[in-house]
Computed example of a mutant assay.
Amino acid sequence: MSIFSLKMEIADNRHYNGQLSSLFTIDEAEKARAFHQKVEGYQPTPLQSLDCLAKEIGVGKILVKDESHRFDLCAFKMLGGAYAIARLLCDEYQLDINVFDFDTLKNDIKEKMTFATATDGNHGRGVAWAANKLGQNAVVYMPKGSADERVNNIRALGAECIVTDMNYDDTVRLAIKTAEECGWKIVQDTAWEGYTKIPTWIMQGYTTLAAEAVDQMKIHAVAKPTHVFLQAGVGALAGGVLGYLCDLYGAENLHSVIIEPDQADCIYRSGISADGGMVNVGGDMATIMVGLACGEPNPLGWPVLRDCATQFVSCQDSVAALGMRVLGNPLGDDPRVISGESGAVGAGLLVAAYYHPDREALMAKMGLNKDSVVLLINTEGDTDPVHYREVVWQGKHPTL
């Protein structure tokens, strides 16, 4: 295979202190997983072992948690949205989350509630799915340029879907304003002053996938990963999952790499800031990784990443496109993984580093060697099938 150069800015976390989060713990993860296990149709998503790819790039093991199989939604996001809505309703009706039942509650709700959110696609679909399961209403706002397939998937669940002429962060502000005016319940995966409970529940809901992966590693004779690569938009998934894994293994025992598109790298910029404060990114954030096209860090996730992440990465879109092609066209007997733009960037980073002219320096910087066990999260499948084909079949965003 050719040697090629893709843009990857890898920065050590200058603010690391290893302090664990009290919000994203083993106990909270098990509480969330117990809830998800009671949802009709629940099955753990597969943890795929890419042994041929691992051998090719000289690491011990590459494990991919494949969220493209999460229910019939092709992405992990429902884990957060459904759990948060359930917790919200338990508060509303004085119920115990440990005995929560979708069907019973659906019959007990006397007046329909409306849940509102802003989304790049997958989070809104998860909120619409949960509202549909409960016979409630959902209103979903999406930023300009949203793919028709993602819009149609949300509407197919009975939700109202409104595509704005704004970027993601401004769309969030519009959703909040409208929800307050209409008396709707806002279910958003980022936090702000006075709004932390629901996004905390959403992030705790995401930890189910990590708890599943920890159990599934035993099947692959893996005691624990040495590395975890986590993609970040606002940092909700990355913060929740890293918080849980650090509580389980200790931050000092896990090399964690947080990856973003260079057009929306607010976490990366926060990580290299002098004071460790959150840094916002504005503009259109025109990246193919639409699930990561967020310019303002989640203030609940950022402290976890600031304290426990090993490194932050800002990379060009071709890194994600490379990951889509690598996962969809596997080496040898490796299983095929259908991964969308935001889901594939971790695999893309691994391969882009290995085939870079500065391979040795990049692999050493990320601490990758023959003993490394790398955990990747494929957060979505081909949620935009048209663009998936453009990348994987037609070579959009080429490597060379």
Rank of each mutant, 00 (worst) to 15 (best):
N13I: 07
R14Q: 10
N17R: 07
Q19R: 14
L23H: 09
I26T: 13
D27W: 01
R33H: 09
G41H: 02
Y42G: 09
E56A: 13
E56Q: 14
V64S: 02
K65S: 06
K65H: 06
D66G: 07
D72H: 14
F76P: 08
I97C: 12
F102L: 07
T104Q: 11
K106W: 08
K110E: 14
E111P: 05
M113F: 11
N132W: 11
K133L: 15
M142N: 03
P143A: 06
K144F: 07
N152H: 15
A156M: 14
G158R: 01
A159N: 00
E160T: 13
K177G: 00
G183Q: 11
W184S: 03
I186V: 15
V187D: 11
T190I: 06
G194I: 04
Y195S: 10
Y195K: 11
K197V: 13
T200Y: 00
I202P: 12
G205N: 05
L209I: 14
A211L: 06
A211E: 02
V228T: 03
Q231N: 09
A238P: 03
G240S: 03
L242I: 02
L242C: 08
C246G: 06
D247L: 00
L248E: 13
N253C: 09
E260N: 04
P261F: 02
S270R: 01
V279Q: 05
V279M: 04
D284I: 04
D284R: 12
T287R: 01
V290M: 02
G291M: 02
P297M: 02
V304W: 05
R306G: 02
A321P: 00
R325E: 10
L327F: 10
N329T: 14
N329M: 11
G343V: 05
G343M: 04
A344Q: 09
A347Q: 06
V351F: 14
A353Q: 08
K365F: 11
K365N: 13
G367H: 07
L368T: 00
N369S: 08
V373F: 05
I377G: 04
T379V: 12
T379E: 03
D384R: 07
Y388P: 03
R389P: 05
Q394L: 13
H397G: 09
